[in-house]
Nucleic acid binder design. Structure first.
Lengths: 234, 234
DNA sequence: TGTGCACATTTTGTATACATTCAGCGAGTC
DNA sequence: GACTCGCTGAATGTATACAAAATGTGCACA
């Protein structure tokens, strides 16, 4: 598939990483990728460097590139850090957003609702990513944006399963998330910083519950009798 | 000056940017730099990409690289953002620091006091940078570290004049900063997170006063008589 | 004097050939 | 039988030649 531009390649690799089409920790072969995108190795390597700079991949001298891993340790810090950064970003966004940025945000939200309705899980996850990245742009704070972008990478990868509703109860949660998005848009549009923070933290709580269940899933149903036996055995 | 390794080149460019030997906004010519470091353009370009990824420089398609600028707009967000990130980093550092990291921190502080005593301003600024970057490593939080590193770039560049004491009063401030460093080390060593936060915010207050005076310097002494004339003229 | 255009120069982007490093594997030795 | 050593292949790292883009310059012309 020849004649991808460097920018296309960059965007496509980001997508494939966010959707875990490229699994965390998996190795990236330069010649394979270069051939795939119809680029020579030099520009492809530049794409990889840039991806490394934004936290999508990691590189080791003489040992190539890997998709950024998601070990249990960084998951802990993820849950620690996300609400603080999200809230501050939301506040700054409500303060500094431009009209054009607001339009883009509304458009991303339209995509999001459309794709959740269709049940297109990975597309919905990507729209959600774009929604929150746009709020990051609104904040106009390059320092915090650096944190936010990294958080969103892991957030999106973790939430891959979220938008694939398994039960009616989960469909309700997805609907709730979309409603929260709408409320956030209103708050940002009205420059209501305190409200934006509040809504963002509520949105985070919803997200966190679901993500934590993914990281540490509900225990499997067990045979009560044999469980009792094991307990006695200890 | 041939036979620099890529890593050397990376480190040296960081230094020259932090000391404003390479001024904010100044253009970086690839062939000149490549010749200077004895590298060919390919690896040099990779160094530049990495520097761009960490926020030291900016790159524009077909238009080369520039040292990251320090416009008045980002300065505002700098003062907004720094205390929050610094405080959170300090708290996490006090929680997670290893013994080896503590040793490195103490060593950086030794360098710092030695260089301020010698009056070596740019060396002192770099040691100070290293001191705070090490606290960042202790935090073990890749998300926040991304913000911190960017903040420290601008912080160090802004503080270039700080360690070149103009008046005895300023020497006292430098001494105070060094004392605060010592107190922070103790707090981190003792895992006292609350104290570490407190000390960090005090340290920031000291820093901020001095930095703001640099951004918006004290008015020059004026001839009172002619000043009165001008006032009447308005 | 000022404006616009074409050309020349400089600088960046790309492809490719070559060098180096690393990992796996087998033969030889203790 | 286990270990070391060295070979081999496959990957990454580097240099350089060439292509494309952008900037600057000189000149013609209004």
């Amino acid at each position: 598939m020849p004649n991808f531009t460097k920018e296309d390649c960059f965007a496509d690799l980001k997508l494939r990483i966010l959707t875990t089409d490229l699994a965390p920790g998996s190795a990236l072969d330069e010649v394979t990728l270069a051939a795939h995108y119809g680029l020579s190795r030099t520009p492809l390597r530049e794409v990889l460097q840039r991806l490394a700079g934004v936290g999508y991949i990691t590189q080791a001298e003489n040992r190539g590139s890997k998709v950024a891993s998601m070990d249990i340790g960084t998951m802990r810090t993820f849950f620690q850090t996300a609400p603080m950064i999200y809230a501050n970003i939301a506040s700054l966004a409500a303060e500094n957003r431009t009209a054009a940025q607001l339009d883009a945000l509304k458009s991303a939200q339209l995509d999001f609702t459309r794709e959740t309705a269709k049940g297109d899980a990975s597309a919905a996850a990507l729209s959600n990513h774009r929604f929150h990245a746009l709020i990051g742009e609104m904040a106009q704070n390059p320092y915090l944006t650096a944190s936010l972008d990294r958080l969103l990478i892991d957030h999106t990868r973790l939430s891959q399963t979220f938008y694939r509703p398994a039960s009616p109860a989960e469909s309700v949660l997805i609907k709730k998330a979309a409603d929260q998005h709408d409320a956030m848009i209103s708050a940002i549009e009205a420059h209501e910083t305190a409200l934006a923070i509040d809504l963002t933290l509520q949105h985070w709580d919803l997200s966190r519950d679901r993500l934590e269940r993914f990281v540490r899933p509900d225990p499997l149903p067990v045979d009560v009798v044999s469980l009792k036996d094991r307990r006695n055995a200890i």
